[in-house]
Amino acid sequence: MSIRWRKRAGIALALLAGAAIPYVAPPVYVNLASEILIFGLLAMSIDLLLGYTGLVPLGHAAIFGVAAYVVAYLNARMGLSHTVAIPAGILGALIVSGVFGLLAVRTAGLYFMLITLAEGMLVWGLAYRWTSVTGSENGIGGITRPEFLILPWQFYYAVLVLFAVCAWMLHRIAHSPFGLTLRGIRDNEARMPMLGYNVTLHKFLAFLISGGFAGIAGAAYALYNRFVSPATVEFARSAEGVLMVILGGSGTLIGALLGSGLILLTRNVISLYTDRWLIVMGTLFVLVILFMPDGLLRGLERGVHRLRVAVSHLRFLGSLLRPIRSPTTAKEPAGEVPVPTRHETP
């Protein structure tokens, strides 16, 4: 019970901190915060496959990108309203992940990675070659935002709400009966059929759901960036999404946001100070992986726990020292030397 309330308090605090950002940070950083949330959502969609189902998708930026391209094309090229373009973008991502999923989910492990990689390349190739639609490397610019989302802080709050709602939905899914079947596939795929599970079907549904959320992130990205190009769908983006999950802690969902924050912050902040920011970023990643092999979220949790333990040990030591130093000044009777009590660690 107390754990549940502590969690709720944590979520409320995080939301409050998130809501405070526009008050304390300059617009550039408010925009960066929007970007972190958008890619955090993409990474969370990856985590549903990676952390829960045990599949590593290497083409998710392509699904994300399809949504972004559809929104860009319908909005900027055809002048359609957002109420049409955004749902169409998400639908586009769902259709693409349906097709990609059909091809990919019959495999597992390395083969799954290779197939999703190839699928991602395919979309990237299309983005380059299908010039009449995608504008090739010129991309599609001139995407508009709804009037009430033009300023950085306005857009940021919309993304914050979107992220929170999607995170809540993904959390529900991960802890639903269906989510349990995904974890079952991750844990022991071979045992599943004998229990009555059509493993391929469950993987396919997971792929579809994951693709849907990647699509939501992609549609948001189109409005955020107001420009879409092949760089949006390239392999590096897909790999970065996976990296975000691993850095943040796979199988935690919200760790993906920490991963996204770490990557985008280091890239955007450190690159202000040095051209060698890639080296700094690489070093940082290695350090995280070395010292927090199960990711930032669990690593930080452990850190906080250790801190608590250390504090209680110090207190214990302090309580040992006190009676030795104090008898001369203290007026307590000799028999009442306080007995050191061990503080229980939570």
Binding site: R172, I173, S176, P177, F178, G179, L180, T181, R183, G184, D187, N188, A190, R191, M192, L195, G196, Y197, L205, I209
Partner: peptide, 28 residues
Amino acid sequence: RIFPTFTVRENVLLAAMGLQPIKFALHR
């Protein structure tokens, strides 16, 4: 062939719902 990261109860829950439509429930 058990599910090592699951609790004992989760192992059996997963097995018990394998033939029930609730295995597709997403929301609760």
